[in-house]
């Protein structure tokens, strides 16, 4: 029975490939990045806490075009079946459907599931879960606009750590993360989406500056050992810079709370 009330689109439809600047040829030159940065500079980052009122803690991070929001709920009681003497950290990572060039579906695809796992592995070493028996901490990260998938992941980790701090959950240190793109033997910090299409590999690293410990590292692509080690060092330095912004943001939040209360 034909449905006369609706005008449905054709069954098979293809997204138009017109993206701004897609018609011009893009050649990647490390010396001249599109936003004028040096290869060892991260994008200027803006952070704010307390953006989600319902949540116990929340944070918002912006780096260039990238926008990530995170809400933390917890510690709250774990379901009966999973009770353990150590707290449980649940992480959820999701790209918004409108976040990138192509629309993403509502249901999580395998990349988002993988990033959720990475998020947990990056944050778990820092959170004092042993102080939260029988409890669960839920971390929900939503990417509002993505600009480089590796950079999004790094921003998500940073944002989640900030939200956890805002929620008052005890941690060993605020985890900061950053991403790197490899272009043969050139290392570029914090690659954007356009730059990512030309990279031969990527690295995401999360780091606790006060303890000098790397909580998570994940790299893909064929890279030489010396290049990798250099990239690790660059990332560690960048993470220290990011953490100083985190600390400033948290200090500002506390001041507001004291003054406002």
């Amino acid at each position: 029975m034909a449905d006369r009330k609706r005008v449905t689109g054709p069954e098979k439809s293809v997204v138009p490939l017109l993206e701004p600047g897609s018609l011009s040829a893009f050649t990647f030159d490390p010396e001249k990045r599109k936003d004028g940065r040096n290869i060892d500079r991260i994008r200027p980052v803006f952070m704010k806490t307390g953006v989600v009122r319902q949540a116990n803690g929340s944070a918002y991070l912006e780096a260039g075009k990238l926008k990530v929001a995170c809400g933390v709920y917890g510690p709250r009681q774990t379901a009966r079946s999973k009770i353990s003497s150590r707290g449980i950290l649940n992480c959820d990572f999701k790209f918004s459907p409108f976040s990138g060039g192509r629309r993403r579906a509502y249901i999580k695809d395998s990349q988002e599931k993988e990033y959720s796992l990475v998020l947990r592995q990056a944050l778990a070493p820092a959170v004092r879960l042993d102080l939260l028996p029988k409890s669960t901490v839920d971390v929900f990260v939503q990417v509002l606009e993505s600009d480089g998938s590796a950079a999004c992941l790094a921003a998500a980790i940073t944002c989640a750590a900030l939200a956890l701090a805002d929620a008052g959950i005890e941690m060993l240190d605020a985890v900061a993360a950053c991403a790197v793109g490899y272009f043969d033997s050139t290392i570029c910090l914090d690659p954007t989406d356009e730059e990512e299409t030309y990279q031969s590999g990527s690295l995401v690293l999360s780091y606790m500056p006060s303890l000098n410990e790397v909580t998570h590292v994940i790299q893909s692509g064929e890279i030489g050992t010396t290049t990798t080690i250099k990239a690790l060092e660059l990332c560690v330095d960048a993470c220290a810079q990011i953490q100083s912004v985190m600390q400033q943001t948290l200090a500002a939040t506390i001041k507001e709370k004291i003054n406002g209360a």
Binding site: Q121, N212, E213, T215, V217, S220, G221, E222, T228
Partner: peptide, 17 residues
Amino acid sequence: RGNLCALQKGGHGGIEP
């Protein structure tokens, strides 16, 4: 060729750089 094709960390603890 001696190049790294992937690198991934696992486990609950941290590693010094």
